[in-house]
Design a protein around this nucleic acid. Structure first.
Lengths: 170, 170
DNA sequence: TTCAGTGCAAATTGTTTGCAGTGAG
DNA sequence: CTCACTGCAAACAATTTGCACTGAA
């Protein structure tokens, strides 16, 4: 698997320094003539202090559980701003919820989603990226973003399923 | 572009004979002990007599415009059955609507979506399919379905944009 | 001081559900 | 004759919006 770029699956990896992310966000806001408010700051921190993957409703739950609650509307509005400034990316899954991932410092990558346990595995294969560009060239298409999602069963859930199926036959 | 499989973009291509599709659907229903009803038939025909791509709400609009209106609930319920039997496939969920494409006789393929005019271009690259399998092997992941979506601007919209931007500079 | 931003509650949108009546097998 | 299917209207769940108030610049 030469071209596959191994990624440690470390959801709570705190390498990205929250302060610098907030700074970047504040700068973006000022550049755009938007205001830096405690709510926006709080939301940005919450997003960046937890797992890479989250959805809007989860975020609402978490933020409203804290003493410094932020309203649902503000959270939705702020997620849009965060997306515009590139700190967060929509990845949208199968259910009706809007899924995001924080994107600072992350190279583009694609996902494997386990149908059973919901696990998310990230991967990146240069060769696939390149082939996509070829396709676009071929159609004169100007790509802005893409997503490759593979759904199925992860190793563990597959093993479990095989076992369950076997025991049903007894 | 050796491995790229050219697909004529012919949305209303009626090669797939509606009668045989309906037949297949009826057989599936019987096999499963489900009933063949006029509503299910009507929905199946509507799906197969129009463009490959559609979303649930569009279908509702079209079916309710006709004299033989079918209720929204029945349409949603039937789409599920059509999906189980493989006559229809769920695709992207960019907006909040549920998008489908009819899948009979179509080989798996991926999509380019134009952000501007909404055009959809289908493509298939064997090499990409193969690389995806490699990725799954590597993680011990058992794939069931996948989708690769590329968003951006199609040739025409890109040209238009370039022109517009240029005229703004005058 | 002045709007952009906030919270709240009401509105929207797509989809799902409960139920009484109906018709396919 | 039965029970799966239908239409309807109400229920849901996620997101959006209108509006009066508030606080960042």
């Amino acid at each position: 698997m030469r071209s596959m770029d191994e990624k440690k699956k470390n959801e709570s990896d705190d390498k990205t320094d929250i302060e610098s992310v907030c700074n970047e966000f504040h700068q973006y806001l000022r550049r755009k003539g938007l205001r830096v408010t405690p709510e926006r700051d709080r939301i940005c921190r919450e997003v960046y202090s937890t797992s890479i993957h989250f959805d809007a409703e989860d975020l609402v739950q978490r933020l409203q559980a804290s003493s410094e609650s932020v309203s649902r509307a503000t959270i939705y509005r702020t997620l849009e701003v965060l997306e515009e400034c590139g700190l967060v990316k929509k990845i949208r899954q199968t259910d009706k919820r809007r899924h995001y991932e924080k994107s600072l410092g992350l190279e583009h990558h694609d996902h494997l989603f386990c149908d059973e346990c919901g696990k998310v595995i990230e991967f990146r294969v240069e060769e696939i990226e390149r082939l996509q560009d070829d396709v676009c060239d071929h159609y004169g298409f100007h790509p802005r973003r893409h997503s490759l999602q593979i759904y199925g069963l992860c190793r563990e859930c597959m093993a479990k399923k095989v076992k369950d199926d076997a025991s049903k036959l007894e």
